[in-house]
Simulated assay, not measured.
Amino acid sequence: MISIRDVSTVFTTAGTDFTAVDHVSLEIPRGSIQGIIGFSGAGKSTLLRNINLLERPTSGRVSVDGTDLTALGDEELRRARHQIGMIFQHFNLLNNRTAQQNVELSLKFAGVEKKERRRRAKEALAIVDIADKADSYPARLSGGQKQRVAIARALATEPKVLLCDEPTSAVDPRTTASVLQYISDINAQLGITTVIVTHEMNVVKAIADNVAILEEGRLVERFDLAELDRPGFRPATEIGRYLISDDITLDRAARATKELSHA
């Protein structure tokens, strides 16, 4: 469904090149949920934006549902993006528009006529159980409700692919579970191929079929989440082993030494 082939993305700032994504290749099957994890600065969000070419790769190819997006002109790419929904970390809702109007906006850009926009927006809001907030402005919504509006906006164009950029990092732990449940249900019921970028392994464990681990822009490991339940399974990379650990470990010996030095 999604084919990322030898993709690199290089940014140039003040005459200095920085490689955010470094020769990454990844095949994502139709209807699956692909997790992409890594520390801050690993290139996760850049790679996600490479999929819909919000960030055009410096080299390599990206194909979605058999269409090579990197070969399309601007107008063709705009049309192709209507089949790729995106959920952002900070909701990206317009404060001067109601929940329904925010959802309709994506349809307006897609050229959908007004009556059909209203119907599809209401349908999308109903999918995430927030139809009763259709006339509410973002300032009157909780973080979880805002994210559900953002999910509805992404679904309104009836996409084949859903890209999720840190969709739970701006909400509390209880709301995180709710948001992930909606994304999981949408994947199961509508068959939308989903890619979720996060630095939280517990998020990937809860929802993904497969995890890809990035480090300094490179794909260093990939495995099915089912492997985590297999006795004796251990990620091959140090970063993989660190990220799947649920524990937070502090250097207590160093702290004790510091306290003694101040005694």
Rank of each mutant, 00 (worst) to 15 (best):
I2K: 00
R5G: 03
R5Y: 07
V10T: 12
T13I: 09
T16P: 00
T16F: 01
D17I: 00
F18V: 13
F18Y: 13
L26T: 08
E27Q: 15
P29I: 10
G38Y: 02
G41Q: 05
S45L: 02
T46K: 02
R49S: 08
N50M: 09
G66W: 11
A71Y: 06
L72W: 12
G73I: 06
G73V: 10
R79G: 07
R79H: 11
Q83W: 04
Q83D: 15
I84A: 01
Q89F: 11
Q89E: 11
F91T: 04
F91I: 10
N92T: 05
L93P: 09
L93W: 06
L94S: 07
N96H: 14
R97D: 05
Q100S: 09
E104G: 12
L105W: 14
L105D: 08
A110M: 08
G111E: 10
V112I: 15
V112E: 11
V112Q: 08
R117Y: 04
R118C: 01
E123F: 01
I127A: 14
A131Q: 13
A131F: 05
D132G: 10
D135I: 09
P138W: 03
K146F: 04
V149Q: 05
E158Y: 11
V161P: 03
L163N: 08
D165L: 01
E166M: 10
P167A: 00
A170G: 10
V171R: 03
P173W: 12
T176R: 14
A177I: 03
N187H: 03
A188V: 01
L190M: 13
G191F: 04
V195I: 14
A208L: 07
A208Y: 05
N210A: 06
V211D: 01
I213V: 15
L214P: 06
E216S: 14
V220R: 07
E221T: 04
L225W: 00
P231G: 08
G232W: 06
G240F: 05
L243Q: 03
I244F: 12
I244H: 01
D246C: 06
I248C: 06
L250P: 02
A254V: 07
K258Y: 15
L260D: 13
S261T: 09
A263Q: 15
